[in-house]
Write a protein that binds this DNA or RNA. Structure first.
Lengths: 228, 228
DNA sequence: TATTATTAACTAACCAGTTAATTAATGGTT
DNA sequence: AACCATTAATTAACTGGTTAGTTAATAATA
């Protein structure tokens, strides 16, 4: 099989980054489908096509593997969304719309992502989250949330948005964007056909943007943005 | 423990219905917090204050116990919501509002419910749902969903609602109602204080109704309903 | 005495994590 | 340009703790 990659370390056999990536991908899917406790390490190894011991070689734990999967999803979202939220050139109405599109498209690119995140969001009411999950939420979750709240406040000041409760509104927006995807198995059950098909996703996208605009924009702001 | 109830069957010791109910309640909480696979039957028995073997005596399986818990939550919702959806005396705008309030209040009465349901909604992408879950969804999920879709259509015809896609809109509405509750641990993490406190719930309730109305109602319909 | 409710103790399967051995590449030494 | 020590990557097979589910005995009621 062709030439070997110029691996940095000495004594490296095979293609470790590829192996690592394969494990991470398999873990992501298994965790999203089955949950942390429901996921089986044997199954993850099987999906990745590697020996189970490699999971523990690359990632300490099952929990460590989970944290890595969660971190990848969250940092990917953060990266994309943060850049559009920091665009002072755009008025709040357009920034919000662009955010919603970006968030939606990121999720749509891998419909399994939000289920992983939602599973984390649902984790344990009374008890605390795992240290790893806390760090991820601290680094990615909180900044995003508070940045969005600030955006709502700016929009209200600018007269783009109705006078709504910023905190509650952010929750409603995210819920609208995300709910279709985290309920996909149910969607599949309710309506025939594949809910992840491009046409269905496109329909959902349009509906989400329309719903959010109508819910938040003032009539004046609504007129200014042409609905794509 | 006063006088014993007049139990129907002969040879009955203790109070079986109470025991059954205690098990079901404990199971409901454990399943909602930990998921089906994460839930521990020993823990359910401990919480219910009964011997573990009783779980298998009253409910066949762990899966059977889960199905019973899910059924209770779903049928409770169905019962309450169906009655308000079948009120031809109310115009669509008021019926929708009443539905949203009813759904919200049902969930708020036991904030653990929607997490149980959401866990089921997320279950397995490719594979099918369990037979028991399928039956429950068939009996409660589908009727509710299609009744809501019909309501949206009626509202559009009546000029109460904007011209929206009924199917997508139902998903958005449910998402808005439910998302706060299924993300409670995350809410707790993002904002200090108890997200299940009466004040927070009240604030959420007002915001949800406002969000939904603004998103769906035509200006004319919005004026007709006074926001409570 | 038959039936129902309840329990303590047991078991068999499952599954996260380990270990010890193996294979391959690298780089330095002659 | 052959050799070999070192290190990284990978595996088959094993282990020990956990946990869903069982069983056989027992207590209470009718």
């Amino acid at each position: 099989m062709v030439a070997a990659i110029k691996s940095g370390k000495s004594g490296s056999r095979g293609e470790p980054e590829k192996t690592r990536a394969a494990i991470l991908k398999a873990a992501l899917e298994e965790f999203a489908h089955e949950g942390v406790t429901g996921a089986r390490t044997d199954e993850i190894a099987r999906r990745a096509g590697v020996n189970k011991a490699l999971l523990y070689y690359y990632f300490k734990d099952k929990e460590g593997l989970y944290a890595a999967a969660l971190d990848q999803v969250f940092s990917g979202l953060h990266e994309r969304v943060a850049s559009v939220l920091e665009r002072p050139d755009l008025p709040p109405r357009e920034r919000l719309l662009l955010y919603a599109q970006t968030h939606f498209d990121y999720i749509a690119s891998a419909p399994v992502y939000p289920r992983l995140v939602q599973r984390e969001f649902m984790r344990s009411a009374g008890r605390a989250l795992s240290p790893a999950a806390s760090r991820i939420m601290e680094r990615h979750g909180k900044p995003l949330y508070s940045r969005l709240e600030k955006l709502i406040e700016e929009g209200i000041s600018a007269g783009d948005f109705r006078k709504v409760d910023p905190i509650q509104t952010v929750t409603s927006i995210i819920g609208t964007i995300v709910f279709y995807f985290i309920s996909m198995p149910a969607q599949h059950f309710m309506h025939a056909g594949d809910p992840a098909s491009p046409e269905r996703i496109a329909a959902r996208r349009a509906a989400v943007l329309d719903f959010i605009c109508a819910a938040i924009f003032t009539p004046a702001a609504a007129q200014k943005v042409c609905k794509p």
